[in-house]
Nucleic acid binder design. Structure first.
Lengths: 103, 103
DNA sequence: TGAGCATATAACTATATCGTTATACTATCA
DNA sequence: TGATAGTATAACGATATAGTTATATGCTCA
């Protein structure tokens, strides 16, 4: 993998490295949602959520659609969930090893 | 997924969000290596590489083994490569969509 | 024991980014 | 047209982290 490709991959991981962004993605897994509803769901402020949604969109993880004066966001790249599954599996394994140490 | 689980997943992505750390992992894919050799391979400084190796180890991605006064690091969690593959696939798809726009 | 090599850590600077507050923009509707 | 709702952006302070330089630690061997 070239240095440039490595940077692109790293950038993608970086977008997924914020808990709030993961929460947003998790919420959008249920279907598209307005900014207002996402804000309520993740218990944050509207400007903060808007900013994170923009970051997610710039990386292609979500897509937006405007209807009247409300904007709906939805998942645009299902691979995120595959990534989360792999990480979760790896974490589970790690913790079970650890608990075995104490068990 | 609970808020705590989300944070753990995010932390894992964060460790993978630095290009130099990905380069180190990529190099270690060839087999275990001393800090000195990793340093040469990724073209950085020894203290910097040591710091990143520690971060990778704390998250369980690599493991170390000491022999005399040299320390060998190796991959300890193969799931990283699966993660990179998923991200690469997703990136490829994205770029091919983009090039199609111009094509 | 003392020199030298390999690695780790400390201290620092520079930069990036999170969350907040205030405000701008845009569409709807009375 | 004016008021309001939904969203985006600007500016700011606080915190985190990458990389560097200097130094400490630990092992080996003469």
């Amino acid at each position: 993998m070239s240095a440039e490709a490595v940077s692109l991959v790293a950038a993608r991981f970086k977008v997924l490295s914020e808990p709030l962004r993961l929460q947003i993605l998790q919420y959008l897994e249920n279907g598209e949602s307005s900014v207002t509803n996402v804000t309520k769901a993740v218990n944050s402020t509207q400007p903060n959520v808007s900013k994170h949604l923009k970051i997610l969109q710039d990386e292609g993880f979500v897509a937006k659609r405007q209807e009247g004066n409300t904007v709906f966001y939805k998942i645009a790249d299902e691979s995120i969930f595959e990534l989360c599954d792999v990480v979760c599996g790896s974490l589970k394994e790690r913790f079970s090893e650890r608990s075995a140490v104490f068990g």
